[in-house]
Design a protein around this nucleic acid. Structure first.
Length: 1026
RNA sequence: GCGGGUGUGGUGAAAUUGGUAGACACGCUAGACUUAGGAUCUAGUGCUUCACGGCUUGGGGGUUCGAGUCCCUCCACCCGCACCA
């Protein structure tokens, strides 16, 4: 009986499930280990091969830890609220609750099929009312706290009110949106609404009118990390900045701690840097410039206060509050039209025209606090409203943008810096002259603060997170508005505020949530409910706590559970969450820590990003003849003579081609070294060609190949493709080269390359001959026929449904078995590296499993195991393997673990070893990687009554590893010239003696003097000669 | 523009602190035994040379007895951020 995973894998999965073997409870006697995967959003099409990479890695690690005696918490759940389900609902009418339910079910099945050791009894779903009840509860807590900058933690709002009543804002250290100032008496005199507004200025979850990213197409506001390149991350729709009344989280209050906390985390430097950049701390000064002839002042933040003598104009963001008040009558019109122009522009437009300076003069001036000069105030969109103070002092000699602006508007450019020996010195700046770098900055701040028109300041790029979404499928806020419009919390005992059922998910026009249309829900006795919902990151910001105690109905997690499980020891997931989820989750954790609920202030001790598994997308760019000719002319430049000739010339591998063919083909390949070159070329010139009336149509060719077998059909299909019906695909293959003539005349068949899988047996092409003539089809292929010409090629890119390059793991599992799939994903390369999915190596892994299996069983199904004493050699093989696997699992080097086991199996096979004493530990060793086979070997072959899952992971014994003889490379001047095996016991001198007298070295030593000898014990011997 | 990463055979990739470059696999070549469902086994396989040898970790330079690894410099690709004052 040979290795047939399909005959036992399912059996063991059922066995594990029946025995609840992965179910975990608190156990004070054992050390805990919390190993977490980033929970998936259950999208429509199920898992693809990229998903499981991280899951398998964390599963191997969890199983390893479990076998080492840890109490391992390894849960899974679903991030189930979010935009796609709702978009899908709008298109199809399927309620998000239903589609989410169905998708989650499918994900669960697929995950189970991968043999992952999750404790499913702890599953969480963010859209479950028993879950989001606590999301709402945590929101309430945020709402009821503010951030005390002095104590550096969150404090109850009641404290703030007490402070206002006794001291007003005096000595107040609360993080707020705006700096407010009032006396206790003034506070008491304020109306309820005014007081509520003041408190809003400090709450950690607050409502305010702010400039937000508005996405018309999605009908909602988006957080900064949900906007990429000026368009929405989901869907790629345009985004504009727009003032709106919105809920926000005061993430900025935690900026310093979010930055400082990174230090002790075991995260990759790259990831830490991404967070650091996002938080964007910078040191500088706040400087106030009095506006001439008015009470106002323009405050600016600058990191270079030492350039203050170089200021020649000021710039305000077009949204700056002061503009209305300072603009002179003469300038009013131009300022207003400029503001109007700016507000009409999308983020995309602003970004693409970054180099062009635009602006308007307000007519107002500030007075330079040191020189007394009049300095004009401009407005321009290059100054951002929400960074710093929304205004800058422009120093054209220090800043490139300021210089460009000055040049455009003919403003003076005072020279205040000089470069000498790689250092930049300040000049023409009185007391700053001759200073450089930090010294200059410090001195400037010193003088500025002494003279009282500014002070040192720290500034952050991080902004408060927008927390409102005008969408249906999210957590409702536990908020209603009373008669006076003051937001009021819904009491804890009334939670959850359930999401009402409705069939109308379309966002209403003026930026209102679909919930606003559910009248009977919105209107309550106490007032109108908040109709926005929370963003996707709300539920995912604390789910790691819920797994600790998922069924608790009186707390988000019980104290005992929190104390025991504490934090996540290992968190595995994609780098796409580097600044979104991971930052919010850290902030929520810090907040819960501040209010005494979390025992830790950082949730994820160690974090590993798995690399993306990319898909291989193939393309055909179709062009009519003119396009192709133009394209080729560009590429071939002067070579057009041969392009049109019929002369046969010699191609790459001594094969002859028509010049026509060879020229096009090889040139295209040579000129365009990669698909991205082609992409870039086409992108750059696309518009030119299109405007000249050429057709330009990207088509994927895969589906053609999977559905149609003959080249004729392929060509017909390509010809019939139109822009309205682009051809799309779903499988991987290499490229192809076809011309009409080649198809007609089968003698050319050697130049026709088609992937084997897409050709039926009788049409099988002469691939060998083709391979021999192959230039580099993987890069670019030129395709031509009577109707037009095509460029085919493929590109490695993110695996995604929209790119038609998705590979489904089910197919692979069905063909090779779960264990093989698991091993293969790990064997593909280092965990953290991005790699294209490619099944070409999978046979090797499958072979390895078979060999492993047949150490225990013969092909005929006889158990081969013997009770013989293992030899020294066999023990060495085993223990070397154990050691390597141990060490490599610890550093997440799963690919090399598998290599090590392959080596061991090859050696054991060579030794014809079927001894229990060797094979028992081997079964345990492979258990984290291939749990099904390990279980089969452990229980059936080895005859144990219990599961391999709970066995101890084998340990290596050093004495089996020692060698008596060491193979030394013998080097002359660092180059290996011979090899010899010497006893371990030999001294340095003896080794040198033996080396120098070694016969293979004599010809290298002959006539030379030995200058120096180097012996690295157990490693090498080097003789330096002259 | 700024920040980070990567670059090793035909391919995926190995190589604690500088110490035998290419482990382990795929593919390929030859042979064996067979022939059915992806076979298995043996040998070979970085390039080059008849050979001794020479060359080889993106290119160039340096430190060292010895460099994939350290330093300088240039190039290519990938990722993140981006009028952040």
């Amino acid at each position: 009986m040979s290795y047939r995973p399909e005959e036992f894998e399912k059996k063991w999965r059922e066995y594990w499930e029946e025995k609840h073997i992965y179910q975990v409870e608190r156990d004070e006697a054992k050390p805990k280990f919390y190993c977490l995967d980033m929970f998936p959003y259950p999208s429509g099409k199920g898992l693809h091969v990229g998903h499981p990479l991280g899951y398998i890695a964390s599963d191997i690690y969890s199983r390893y830890k479990r076998m080492q005696g840890y109490n391992v918490l390894h849960p899974m759940g679903f991030d189930a609220f979010g935009l796609p389900a709702e978009q899908y609902a709008i298109q199809t009418g399927v309620h998000p609750a239903d589609s989410t339910q169905a998708n989650a079910k499918r994900y669960r099945e697929q995950l189970k099929q991968l043999g992952l050791s999750y404790d499913w009894s702890r599953e969480v779903k963010t859209c479950d009312p028993n879950y989001y009840r606590w999301t709402q509860w945590i929101f309430s807590q945020l709402y009821q706290h503010y951030y005390d900058k002095e104590k550096a933690n969150a404090q109850p709002i009641a404290e703030l009110i007490a402070h206002f009543e006794t001291k007003g804002t005096e000595g107040l250290q609360a993080a707020g949106t705006e700096a407010l100032e009032f006396k206790p008496a003034e506070w008491k005199a304020r109306s309820k609404v005014e007081q509520a507004n003041i408190l809003m200025n400090y709450r950690l979850a607050y409502r305010s009118e702010s400039y937000v990213n508005w996405c018309e197409e999605l009908g909602t506001v988006l957080a900064n990390d949900e906007v990429k390149d000026g368009v929405s991350e989901r869907g790629g729709f345009p985004v504009v900045k727009k003032p709106m009344m919105q809920w926000s989280l005061r993430t900025t209050a935690y900026a310093e701690r979010l930055l400082g906390g990174l230090e002790d985390l075991e995260w990759s430097d790259a990831l830490k840097l991404m967070q650091e950049n996002w938080i964007g701390k910078s040191r500088g000064a706040l400087i106030h410039f009095p506006v001439k002839g008015m009470e106002h002042q323009v405050s600016v933040f600058t990191t270079r206060p030492d350039t203050i003598f170089g200021v020649s104009f000021m710039v305000l963001a077009p949204e700056h509050d002061l503009i209305q008040e300072i603009t002179t009558l003469e300038q009013k019109e131009s300022v207003e039209s400029y503001i109007k122009y700016v507000s009409s522009r999308s983020e995309r437009e602003r970004m693409s025209e970054m180099q062009d300076m635009s602006g308007a003069f307000t007519g107002a001036f500030v007075q330079h606090p040191l020189t007394g000069q009049d300095i004009p105030i401009y407005i321009s969109e290059y100054v951002l409203k929400d960074y710093g103070t929304g205004a800058i002092m422009a120093v054209p000699d220090g800043d490139d943008r300021d210089r460009r602006f000055a040049e455009k508007y003919n403003l003076p450019i005072p020279i205040i810096q000089e470069e000498k020996q790689d250092d930049i010195y300040i000049i023409n700046s009185e007391f700053l002259d001759g200073l450089t770098g930090d010294k200059a900055v410090d001195r400037a701040i010193e003088v500025i603060s002494k003279k009282g028109f500014g002070e040192a300041q720290i500034n952050f790029k991080l902004r408060d997170a927008n927390f409102s979404r005008q969408r249906y499928w999210g957590e409702p806020f536990p908020i209603y508005y009373d008669d006076e419009g003051i937001p009021q919390l819904i009491q804890d005992n009334e939670l959850p505020v359930r999401l009402p059922g409705t069939d109308d998910f379309k966002p209403s026009s003026e930026g209102k949530s679909p919930l606003s249309k559910v009248k009977e829900w919105v209107i309550t006795d106490r007032g109108r409910r908040e109709t926005d919902t929370m963003p996707g990151f709300a539920g995912s910001s604390w789910y790691y706590f819920r797994y600790m105690d998922p069924h608790n109905s009186s707390a988000f997690a019980g104290e005992d559970a929190l104390q025991y499980w504490k934090d996540v020891d290992l968190y595995i997931g994609g780098a796409e969450h580097a600044v979104g989820h991971l930052l919010y989750a850290r902030m929520w954790c810090k907040f819960l820590y501040d209010i005494g609920l979390s025992p830790v202030d950082e949730p994820f001790k160690k974090l590993v990003n798995q690399g993306m598994i990319q898909g291989r997308s193939s393309f055909v760019y179709r062009a009519n003849e003119k396009f192709a000719e133009a394209f080729l002319k560009k590429l071939l430049k002067e070579n057009l003579s041969s392009y049109e000739s019929d002369v046969l010339i010699e191609g790459a591998n001594g094969k002859t081609f028509s010049a026509d063919f060879a020229c096009r083909f090889s040139k295209v390949v040579i000129e365009l070294k990669s698909m991205s070159d082609l992409e870039r070329y086409l992108e750059t010139h696309r518009r030119d060609f299109e405007s000249a009336g050429y057709i330009f149509l990207p088509i994927s060719i895969e589906e053609l190949f999977s559905n149609y077998h003959t080249p004729e059909v392929i060509i017909n299909k390509i010809e019939s493709a139109t822009e309205s019906a682009p051809l799309v695909t779903s499988c991987c293959n290499t490229g192809l080269f076809i011309s009409r003539d080649m198809v007609k005349d089968r003698s050319h068949v050697s130049e026709l390359h088609v992937d084997v899988s897409m050709v039926s047996e009788k049409d099988k092409l002469d691939l060998k001959a083709f391979e021999a003539s192959r230039v580099d089809l993987d890069k670019v292929v030129y395709l031509t026929n009577a109707q037009g010409e095509y460029l085919c090629g493929h590109q490695v890119e993110k695996m995604s449904k929209s790119k038609f390059n998705v590979v489904n793991p089910d197919d692979v599992v069905e063909q090779y078995g779960t264990d093989c799939f698991r091993l293969y994903e790990m064997f593909l390369g280092p965990l953290d590296q991005a790699k294209p999915w490619d099944t070409q190596n999978i046979g090797g892994v499958s072979k390895f499993l078979r060999k492993f299996y047949h150490l225990y069983w013969s092909e005929d199904g006889d158990v081969l195991l013997t009770k013989e004493e293992p030899t020294k050699e066999e023990l060495k093989v085993l223990h070397q393997c154990i050691k390597k696997v141990h060490e490599d699992i610890e550093r997440m080097g799963f690919n090399t673990c598998i290599s090590a086991m392959m080596i061991a199996v090859n050696e054991l096979k060579k030794l014809n070893c079927h001894k229990r004493d060797i094979l028992e530990p081997m079964a345990c060793l492979i258990a984290p990687f291939a749990p099904h086979m390990a279980e089969e070997l452990w229980q059936v072959a080895l005859g144990h009554p219990d599961s391999v899952v709970i066995q101890a992971f084998p340990d290596w014994v050093e004495k089996y590893l020692v060698e008596d003889e060491i193979d030394y490379p013998l080097c002359i001047n660092g180059k290996k010239r011979a090899e010899a095996s010497f006893s371990k016991e030999l001294s340095r001198e003896e080794l040198i003696e033996k080396a120098i007298t070694h016969e293979d070295l004599q010809k290298w030593l002959d006539g030379k003097n030995v200058v120096k000898t180097i012996v690295v014990p157990n490693k090498m011997i080097n003789v330096v000669v002259k």
